[in-house]
Amino acid sequence: MSQLVFIAFQDNDNARYLVEAIQEDNPRAEVQHQPAMIRIQAEKRLVINRETMEEKLGREWDVQEMLVDVISIGGNVDEDDDHFILEWN
């Protein structure tokens, strides 16, 4: 059985950058658009990198900023200064 992790964001301007960054760092992630929200799922692991986000945004970005736009997650969370990872063992 596959083990999908997922994250969902409100569909807003911040999310566009997050989705771009996620797609870049997780080429196999699947992006689903639903009314007012964007849901991204991937097998086993999904990572959001601060560095990629900062490149996209052209400014400093704190990983915790994402808390404002996230709607839901599935997977064990590993968060530090540089990344936010969702993972199943």
Partner: peptide
């Protein structure tokens, strides 16, 4: 409703992490 719902859910992501 969608706004309060999703805004509440942004807290929920923390709550879910606590749950696990």
């Amino acid at each position: 409703t969608v706004t309060f719902g999703f805004s509440a859910q942004s807290d929920e992501a923390r709550h879910m992490t606590l749950g696990l």
